[in-house]
Design a protein around this nucleic acid. Structure first.
Lengths: 226, 226
DNA sequence: GGATTATTTTGCGAGATGGTACAAAAATCG
DNA sequence: CGATTTTTGTACCATCTCGCAAAATAATCC
């Protein structure tokens, strides 16, 4: 898992470009790419999620993406840039899986349940074991030393807070919560619940237990029984 | 910060053993140690908390502890063992700072406030910026790949859950909580609040904001106003 | 004082690491 | 076809990494 000396054969998937470029690409000039940047970035993201920044070597990334190092460097920049791009990609995917749930009209309790179910799907995915949340598990670790990563982490944290806050605010307006409920405090508890399941999933707490934690937290936030 | 080639002079603190050994040590036989294992372990812990496992090199540890590598190796074993011993030390210290608060008799709200204040003291300490919680920030990251570390992390998580649960159970018996309050669910929210401030402190969220989050969470758990 | 014991010190070695230089390869353009 | 352009593949570098062996040092024991 650490070194490689990649077998030089079988490195080239024969189907390397079904249609050369999605659409409207006039026709690229030089030698065609042997990889698809989007899926390579996904592989890099998988690795960073599993191992974190420092424990992931360029050889690991090279092997996982199928790109050799110079190609990696040319496509994404150095290791830190690749990490940041992976993190951006992660956040886009995570946001995409939740934005619909925040937008649609539905009862508060159901909305919370679906948000947490989506989060668990993300945190528990992974071939070699659940990987938790990128923000919580690896990015927060890098955040002390790297202002750019820290800014992204902060942005992610407050973004989640705000999404939950507006969701509680709407619920209060619709009479699903008592008049004196504090949407901001509730949102922070809702975020904290996200964080606790992110951490616990990384420690391989089984999904059933995580779901029980979620249910208990929802009860505390909106009142027991549905 | 990465390499060293330590200046060979000035490496030996002249006061290296005020009293050779605390007490009852009959008299150590060979050359005396130039370091105190306890404080060296503390320095190692500081580094691991700041940088995590993979990003911390033996040279870093050697420089921080003042021990050269073979001495480190002899005293603590290899890097992973040193990491585990550091983590044990961290947990002992953290437990020591909280056990009194859990044991003493006091109103629920005050107990929670003091627990969170103690946690913030730990998370926000550090010369070069707050370091968060070892369990949450670095150990959880290693937990996927290392069963021994994972077991320790799980033990830490459930230990905190249980401490909070018994605290809520007592409060309910004393009438500080409604009869239908669920101590386990409340405990998990209390743990989640610990986790969220651990993560946020790592992202340099200022103490004032963390305290506001704590206050909001306490209100949600035990009911607004004190 | 000499033997014994425990620790420090120096330094090494095999290998991994992040990053890059450079030529060969594979496409389009004229 | 040859020129141009872009990417790939190989090889390399300087540094860092972990762990260890061998020798030097400093204490106690007899």
């Amino acid at each position: 898992m650490v070194q490689k000396s990649k077998p030089p054969a079988a490195a080239n998937p024969p189907e390397r470009r079904g249609e050369p470029e999605r659409r409207s690409e006039p026709k690229r000039r030089g030698r065609p790419r042997a990889y698809e940047p989007e899926i390579a970035l996904g592989k890099a993201l998988d690795l960073f999620r599993k191992q974190g920044f420092a424990a992931t070597s360029l050889d690991d990334l090279s092997e996982a993406t199928g790109m050799n190092r110079p190609s990696l460097y040319g496509a994404f920049g150095d290791k830190r840039e690749l990490y940041i791009k992976s993190y951006q990609r992660y956040r886009e995917e995570a946001a995409a899986s939740m934005v619909e749930i925040f937008r649609q009209e539905m009862p508060l309790r159901q909305r919370l349940e679906r948000i947490y179910a989506a989060a668990l799907d993300i945190y528990l995915s992974g071939d070699t074991g659940p990987r938790g949340c990128f923000t919580v598990v690896t990015a927060a670790s890098e955040a002390v030393g790297d202002p750019e990563i820290r800014a992204m982490v902060l942005d992610g944290l407050t973004g989640l807070d705000k999404a939950f806050a507006s969701c509680f605010r709407r619920a209060r307006e619709k009479g699903e919560l008592p008049e004196n409920a504090d949407p901001i405090a509730l949102a922070q508890v809702a975020s904290a619940t996200i964080h606790t399941i992110a951490i616990r999933s990384r420690a391989r707490v089984p999904r059933k237990e995580l779901e029980a934690i979620v249910k208990g937290a929802i009860d505390v936030m909106v009142g027991a029984k549905g």
